[in-house]
Design a binder for these strands. Structure first.
Lengths: 241, 241
DNA sequence: GCGCCTGGGTGCGGAACCGTACCGGAATTC
DNA sequence: GAATTCCGGTACGGTTCCGCACCCAGGCGC
C-alpha cells in the first residue's frame, strides 16, 4: 500500500482528507451506493448524471476514438472520484468511466455538488487538486504508452491497481488488461509470464497475486511513481484545517 | 484554421473570450512579453513563477520520466496558457512547458492571478474549462501514443501545430518532431515522405508546408478532432456575458 | 576557399508487437 | 455429466519501429 492512500479502509480518501467543516457540509448529501463491476459512471459527450466517490473497488477512465479504439488513460479507487467535469465547472464528460473492479461508495447529485463548491472554496480547492493529480497520471500514461515496453506498462498498471485494493489478490483477466493497455491479449499472456518468471506475481485463471511489490516497482521504474508522488503532495498530506 | 480559434490575430483566445468585466479585471495585470524559442515556461516539481498567455507562437507541455525519456503530452498557442497549476489551486507544475515556436504574449504573477480567481468566479470558471479541454487533449495523446502508427501520429501533430499558427509554413526539424513524438529521427523522415508522397505537405530543411489540410485530417482521422471539438464547446462559443 | 555544424536521406539487422488462429483446461449451466 | 462458455497457452508470418551507423548537402564562420 502506498503511503498517500493510507486512509482507513472503507473510507474515500478525498472525503476523509477534507477539513471537518467541509466534511460536515458534504456528508449529508452523499448517498451510499453499490458499484458493481462494469457499471458506467460517465460517458463521453454526455452530461455527468451522478458523481461517485468509491470507498472500495476500482474505476477506469478510458479514451475512446471514433474508430472504436480505446485505451485506459486513468484509474482511481478510494483515492478519487468520477465526474471531475463538475469540479471543472463543465458538465459533459470527455471520456468514458466505468467500474473495473466492483466496490461501493457514495454518490452525489451534480447540482448539489456544484452548489457546495460555490459555497466552500476550500472544498473546491481540494477537489481541484485531485483533478490536477489525475492530469499528472494521464500525462504519465501518455508517456508510458509512447515509450514503454509491454512488460513495463503491465507492471505499472498492476501497481496502480494494487495501490487501490487492500489485497494482494486481484481478479483480472488477460483479456481485460489487454483492452486497458491497448495491446493483444496474447501479449498480456507473455508479459505476465515474464513477471511470473521473475517471481514478482503469480497468475492463474482470472486471478493475479502480487508477490513482490518492490520488484514490480523496479520493473516499472521508468513509468511508475511521479504521478503518485504528485498525488501525495497534492492531497495526502495537505489537509486543510 | 479551426473555427474554435477564430479570435483576431494577435489576441489570446482565452482572454478574448472573457466577459468584458473579467477582461477589464485581468487586463491591467497582464504584462506584454516576448516568448523566444526554447524559453522555459514551467518546470516539473518547481513552483510556477509566471503564468503566460501567448498571442502568437506555440508552447509544448512535455512529460519527463526519471530516465530522461520524454514525450509531448499537450500543445497550445493563442488558444491557451501555461501555469495551469495555478488555476487548479496548486502551485507546482507536474510537467515541463517551453516555447516550441517563438512568439509573444502576456505574463501575469501567480499571486495576482490567484487573487483574481478568488475575486471572479466567472474568470475561474473560464480558465477551468480550458484546463478541462487540455485534459481531453492529453487523453487523446495517450490514446494516439498507444494505438497510432507513426504516420498517423505525425499527421495529428502537424495539424495541432498548424491550428496554432496563422501560416501554412512551419519551421520544424525532423529531429525536434521526433523528440516530441518519442520516436526516431529517421522515423520522422520516412513519415514526412509518406505524407509528401500523398501531396499533403511539402518539406525541406527545417521547413514544413501544409498543402492539403483536409487530407491531413483524413490521414489522422482516428486521433484528431475530439479534443478540438471539446475545446470549441468549452471555450470557443461559450462566452459568458 | 575551407572547415564545420546542422538537418536530412538511407541502409541493415533485430526486437517488439500485431493479426489471426487453434487448442485445451477450467468454470458454469442445465 | 454433457454441453457450453470463458480464459489462457502457443504458434506463425508479417509489419512497424528501433538502434546504430554512414553519408550527403546546405549554410555559416573564419
Amino acid at each position: 500500500m502506498r503511503k498517500g492512500l493510507s486512509c482507513p479502509y472503507g473510507q474515500n480518501n478525498l472525503i476523509y482528507t477534507l477539513s471537518s467543516a467541509d466534511r460536515a457540509l458534504i456528508e449529508p448529501e452523499l448517498k451510499p451506493v453499490k458499484l458493481p463491476k462494469g457499471m458506467m459512471l460517465e460517458e463521453p459527450g454526455k452530461p455527468v448524471d451522478l458523481v461517485y466517490f468509491p470507498k472500495t473497488g476500482v474505476g477506469s477512465t478510458v479514451a475512446v476514438a471514433r474508430n472504436d479504439r480505446r485505451i485506459e488513460v486513468g484509474l482511481f479507487g478510494c483515492d478519487g472520484m468520477s465526474g471531475t467535469a463538475i469540479v471543472m465547472q463543465s458538465d459533459h464528460a470527455s471520456n468514458e468511466t466505468f467500474m473495473q473492479i466492483a466496490g461501493d461508495g457514495f454518490s452525489i447529485e451534480p447540482d448539489t455538488l456544484r452548489a457546495l463548491l460555490d459555497q466552500s472554496p476550500t472544498l473546491h480547492r481540494h477537489l481541484l487538486r485531485y483533478v490536477q493529480a489525475m492530469m499528472s497520471q494521464i500525462s504519465q500514461t501518455a508517456l508510458s504508452n509512447g515509450h514503454g515496453k509491454l512488460e513495463e506498462r503491465l507492471a505499472r498498471w498492476l501497481l496502480m491497481c494494487h495501490d487501490r485494493i487492500r489485497n494482494d489478490e486481484m481478479s483480472l483477466t488477460h483479456e481485460f488488461i489487454s483492452v486497458m493497455l491497448g495491446v493483444r491479449r496474447a501479449g498480456v499472456t507473455v508479459g505476465t509470464h515474464m513477471l511470473e518468471g521473475k517471481g514478482l506475481i503469480r497468475a492463474n485463471r482470472g486471478q493475479i497475486v502480487v508477490l513482490d511489490r518492490a520488484g514490480l516497482e523496479n520493473e516499472a521504474w521508468k513509468s511508475y511513481g511521479a504521478p503518485e508522488a504528485d498525488h501525495d503532495r497534492l492531497i495526502g498530506y495537505d489537509q486543510p484545517d
